[in-house]
Computed example of a mutant assay.
Amino acid sequence: MNWVLVIIGGMVGAPLRYLADRAVQRRHDTVFPWGTFVVNVAGCFVLGLLSGAVPAGAAGSPVQLLLGTGLCGALTTYSTFSYETLRLAEDGARLFAAVNVVASVVAGLGAAFAGVSLADALWA
């Protein structure tokens, strides 16, 4: 039954990633991959929140499978991040490529820590 929760989460996360990416990218006239950046940081925040909620007893294993593994697994995308960074570097936008790498790691970790901190504030 666990695999069904992962599938359902993935069925929501994948189209959500596509739609969010398109919506964000449409608002920014730049080569920087803002859409992928936003969905990856949002996914890090949700995973951080879940990482704090589960040990506090505010969410159980089924929620973790549905939202963490399924939704966030399909919402976030390391492969697209890697491809877009490589494309930026190959197209001569090396500064944007470097900023994408550094900003994604820093913002992703910051969002995960913020999620855990929020969970601690809410359920500790």
Score class of each variant (00 low, 15 high):
residue 2 N to V: 00
residue 2 N to M: 01
residue 3 W to D: 05
residue 3 W to N: 08
residue 5 L to I: 05
residue 5 L to S: 01
residue 6 V to G: 03
residue 7 I to E: 01
residue 7 I to V: 14
residue 8 I to T: 04
residue 8 I to M: 14
residue 9 G to E: 04
residue 9 G to R: 04
residue 9 G to F: 02
residue 10 G to Q: 09
residue 10 G to K: 01
residue 10 G to Y: 07
residue 11 M to E: 00
residue 11 M to A: 15
residue 12 V to I: 15
residue 12 V to Q: 08
residue 14 A to L: 11
residue 14 A to D: 04
residue 16 L to G: 03
residue 16 L to E: 01
residue 17 R to G: 13
residue 18 Y to S: 05
residue 18 Y to I: 03
residue 19 L to H: 11
residue 22 R to F: 13
residue 23 A to E: 14
residue 24 V to W: 08
residue 24 V to Q: 09
residue 24 V to I: 15
residue 24 V to A: 06
residue 25 Q to Y: 07
residue 25 Q to C: 09
residue 25 Q to F: 02
residue 26 R to L: 14
residue 27 R to E: 12
residue 27 R to D: 08
residue 27 R to L: 15
residue 29 D to L: 10
residue 30 T to E: 14
residue 30 T to N: 14
residue 30 T to W: 06
residue 31 V to M: 11
residue 31 V to G: 11
residue 31 V to L: 12
residue 32 F to T: 10
residue 32 F to G: 05
residue 34 W to I: 11
residue 34 W to D: 10
residue 35 G to Y: 07
residue 35 G to F: 02
residue 36 T to A: 11
residue 36 T to W: 07
residue 36 T to H: 12
residue 38 V to W: 06
residue 39 V to Y: 06
residue 39 V to P: 05
residue 39 V to D: 01
residue 40 N to F: 05
residue 40 N to T: 04
residue 41 V to G: 06
residue 42 A to L: 15
residue 43 G to I: 13
residue 45 F to A: 03
residue 46 V to T: 06
residue 47 L to E: 06
residue 48 G to W: 05
residue 48 G to Q: 05
residue 49 L to V: 02
residue 50 L to N: 10
residue 51 S to M: 13
residue 51 S to A: 15
residue 52 G to Q: 11
residue 53 A to V: 05
residue 54 V to Q: 05
residue 54 V to K: 08
residue 54 V to M: 09
residue 54 V to S: 07
residue 55 P to C: 08
residue 55 P to R: 09
residue 56 A to W: 09
residue 56 A to R: 04
residue 57 G to L: 11
residue 57 G to V: 02
residue 57 G to Q: 09
residue 58 A to K: 11
residue 59 A to L: 10
residue 60 G to L: 04
residue 60 G to D: 07
residue 60 G to A: 05
residue 60 G to E: 03
residue 60 G to W: 07
residue 60 G to S: 03
residue 61 S to G: 04
residue 62 P to W: 09
residue 63 V to M: 11
residue 65 L to E: 00
residue 65 L to G: 00
residue 66 L to F: 07
residue 66 L to W: 01
residue 69 T to R: 04
residue 69 T to I: 13
residue 70 G to P: 02
residue 70 G to M: 06
residue 72 C to F: 04
residue 72 C to T: 08
residue 73 G to T: 05
residue 76 T to P: 02
residue 77 T to I: 04
residue 79 S to A: 14
residue 80 T to V: 10
residue 80 T to L: 09
residue 80 T to E: 13
residue 81 F to Y: 15
residue 81 F to C: 00
residue 85 T to Y: 08
residue 88 L to V: 00
residue 89 A to M: 13
residue 90 E to G: 02
residue 90 E to Y: 01
residue 91 D to W: 09
residue 91 D to Q: 14
residue 94 R to D: 04
residue 94 R to I: 01
residue 95 L to Q: 12
residue 97 A to Y: 08
residue 97 A to H: 00
residue 99 V to C: 07
residue 100 N to A: 10
residue 100 N to M: 03
residue 103 A to D: 05
residue 103 A to W: 13
residue 104 S to V: 01
residue 104 S to E: 06
residue 104 S to R: 07
residue 105 V to P: 01
residue 105 V to Y: 10
residue 106 V to H: 09
residue 106 V to N: 06
residue 106 V to S: 03
residue 109 L to Y: 14
residue 110 G to E: 02
residue 110 G to F: 14
residue 112 A to D: 00
residue 113 F to Y: 10
residue 115 G to I: 06
residue 116 V to N: 02
residue 117 S to L: 07
residue 119 A to L: 00
residue 120 D to N: 14
residue 122 L to I: 02
residue 123 W to M: 01
residue 123 W to C: 03
